[in-house]
């Protein structure tokens, strides 16, 4: 009772500027956690815990058919280091990713710049360039599979111009090029639209100013456009690299990793080991390697952004 009696008095005595317990700061603590809670719970349940399980599996020899699951310690890791197929797989992955990222970003930016010219009908072209993005990936790949045949549409077209086209999916180099190109045209529209949006955000006055300073078109592009759209370049390059490391359906449909092992990228090799050869423990080990690579590349890019990305917060 005394306590109760005292309390209002103390409140009254307190200077009015005394902040309540629920300051904006404290509220933000709660609100922040509440807002990220669904996402965090989802990531923990659907990514972190499964990833932990994958680590656990990687320490085992798991024969799915026999139902055996035996602890083997670091054997899978040792096997990975000794695996003669790992080198070619990493090389194919590097070639695919590097090729795709360079071609994708250049073509996307090139098309975006073209479309950014104040011309009639660019909306039509923009729609056409974007259209493969909305075509089902499997459908798109199947169609390209037909076109890339030795007697398919592409060589038929080359034939008309008098070129004897290569057997695209059967040569080491051409198969890799084919897989890159199929993925390129499927998704370049996405990056193009992002670039276009960024380009349209570049204030016209800046170009005007540069023009008055006598800068050539190329110099204007280098010194005005590129820096101003650099945040978009960062975003698109991260997305494209991460996406390129996960390419699967195209390889599965077009080349199955061949000819030889020229298009057996890491994800496809992982898939083969785990799902086709039933070496799930070993597959888990490869997937951890893939995870580490993706992680390292992303961290690297994120670190480097301060060097070249303009006004990143």
């Amino acid at each position: 009772m005394t306590l109760l009696a005292e309390k209002p008095a103390s409140v009254l005595r307190r200077p009015p500027e005394r902040a309540p317990y629920w300051t904006m700061r404290r509220r933000d603590q709660l609100a922040g956690w509440l807002m990220v809670a669904p996402q965090l719970a989802g990531i923990v349940a659907f990514v972190i815990v499964p990833l932990g399980l994958v680590v656990w599996y990687s320490l085992h020899e798991w024969n799915v058919l026999a139902g055996t699951f035996d602890y083997v310690g670091g054997e899978n890791y040792q096997a990975l280091l000794d695996d003669p197929r790992l080198g070619p797989a990493l090389r194919a992955t590097g070639l695919f990713s590097a090729g795709l990222v360079v071609l994708n970003l250049s073509l996307a930016l090139f098309l975006a710049v073209l479309l950014n010219q104040k011309l009639r009908g660019t909306v039509v072209f923009r729609t056409l360039f974007f259209s493969p993005v909305v075509v089902t990936l499997v459908a798109w790949t199947i169609v390209w599979g037909f076109l890339l045949q030795d007697n398919g549409g592409i060589n038929g077209f080359l034939d008309l111009v008098g070129i004897d086209g290569p057997n695209w999916l059967r040569g080491d180099t051409t198969a890799m090029i084919s897989v890159i190109v199929v993925q390129l045209f499927k998704n370049v529209g996405l990056n193009m639209v992002l670039f276009l949006a960024a380009l349209q955000g570049v204030p016209a006055e800046l170009y005007e100013a540069a023009r008055i300073d006598g800068a050539s078109a190329w110099a204007r592009f280098r010194r005005v456009t590129v820096p101003l759209i650099s945040p978009t370049i960062l975003l698109t390059s991260i997305l494209t690299i991460v996406g390129s490391l996960q390419v699967f359906a195209q390889i599965a449909v077009l080349t199955q990793g061949g000819p030889g092992t020229s298009t057996t990228v890491l994800v496809y090799y992982l898939y083969q080991q785990a799902f086709q050869f039933h070496h799930f423990g070993y597959g888990a080990t490869i997937s951890l390697l893939l995870f580490v690579i993706v992680l390292a590349l992303t961290v690297l890019q994120w670190r480097m952004r301060k060097r070249w990305v303009f006004h990143e917060a």
Partner: peptide, 12 residues
Amino acid sequence: VLAGLLVPNEVT
């Protein structure tokens, strides 16, 4: 959360 971006779905 970002880790989620880096884990290919074949892995999990």
